[in-house]
Amino acid sequence: MKDTREIEKQIQRIKTALAEKRASIQDFETLIGEKVEGELWGFSEKALEKAVWDSFFYLERNKDCLEEEPLTSHRRLVGRVIVLFKKTWRALFRPYSKMILKRQNRFNRELIQLLLASLLRIEKIKERLDALEAKAEILREKQD
């Protein structure tokens, strides 16, 4: 290649600027600019079963939307003011948000119940199917 000193300097400058930005990005998907979650298609039965129950427990744990997360600010000096502002804002609108979120909570609870019932039903059907298959196997062996 030709005289590359100028490009080398440029590379260093760009790298320094990018390093700062990169360090400030916490979210993995933002960093790489795409969704990374795998598709459920192509999973084995065992892997699907794990995925189903993992998802269910995640939903179950997070069904309560009235649960409030602690208010914080990453800013050092003005952080306290910001937190105070957020708290006031939240307190002011709580009666209205509660009204909506209570309905949402009821809906979530019902949905979780429905999901659990469906999953358990599938389990029971699977158990029956396994038992039937075992019986069929015994019959087949006897026939042979």
């Binding site: 590359t4 790298k15 990018l18 390093a19 960093l31 600019g33």
Partner: peptide, 19 residues
């Protein structure tokens, strides 16, 4: 593309230019 993409390009050039 993504920030990582630009970062990877610069890393690649560092190696190519033997920095």
């Amino acid at each position: 593309n993504s920030l990582q993409s630009a970062w990877n390009l610069v890393s690649f050039l560092e190696v190519i230019f033997r920095l």
